[in-house]
Amino acid sequence: MLAQQFINAISLGGVYALFALGFTLIFGVLGIVNLAHGAVFMLGAYSALHAVILLRLPLMAAILAAIVTTGAAGWLLDKLIFAPLRARDAPHLAPMIATIGLAICLSSSVEGFFGAQNLRFPVEALPTETLSLGGIRITWLELQIVLLAFVLMGILMWCLKQTRIGRALRGLAESPKAAALLGIDVEGLFRFTSVLASLLGGVAGVLIALYTNAVFPLMGQPMLHKGIAVVILGGMGDIRGALLGGFFLGFAEVFSVAYIGSTMRDAVAFGLLFAILLLRPDGLFGKATQRRA
């Protein structure tokens, strides 16, 4: 029983971490609180769903389709919103308002096209086999979700740490001025960050859609709240913090459902988050708030 909950918590936490990673990347590198990240997440879920229903693509190809759609959304997000605001040196609130507006536009357009109802993946599209490992049962689907989330996070962490572009991203996150003087194409890398962050959000959207088998226009809202909480818990802009925060929330939710009751899930999870922030107001790895103060 405990081991089973552990598996559930890891898979849910992995998805939260993936979502929070995108959110924190945009904050850390672009210095923007992207309130459209939840809508991009929803876009990922719809893209994969319709790739399965309309194009009859297998699940993995549908996830690729979601990556392409949300990556493109990230490109447009920077091109149409972040870049013009950057060029005008807009104050902090402007991008927040702009991304709230975009989130509303996106969810209402999706509602207009596909309706407000809850959509589901067709059963035959989802793997149904179950694996039994020493008494723990894990569905093939859960396993894929966990693996994908972990592989993506692993690749991202490795690239940030070890590669030329990862170094450049970390440099840019600390100081755009220094980055420009080092010969880093700052504008290009801002755009790249927006694409990368959005497609991470998109994949998280597909994974949650598969996990809960529910796709609806406002599915990004609760996720956005969780994402913000996780990122604040981790310390705004801190990558490790976002990962840890994501898993923390996953565990808090799963274990409060298991031992306290499902109605109390969010209350317990957010209560714990709040308690931690009382102890560490800057979050687990917090110091990033100093930047662009």
């Binding site: 170094r167 450049a168 970390r170 440099g171």
Partner: peptide
């Protein structure tokens, strides 16, 4: 404009970006 969160080595490598 040293990148304080990066290592000395990483700063130098970025110099040759």
């Amino acid at each position: 404009e040293i990148l304080t969160t990066l290592t000395v080595r990483e700063n130098l490598l970025l110099g040759g970006y």
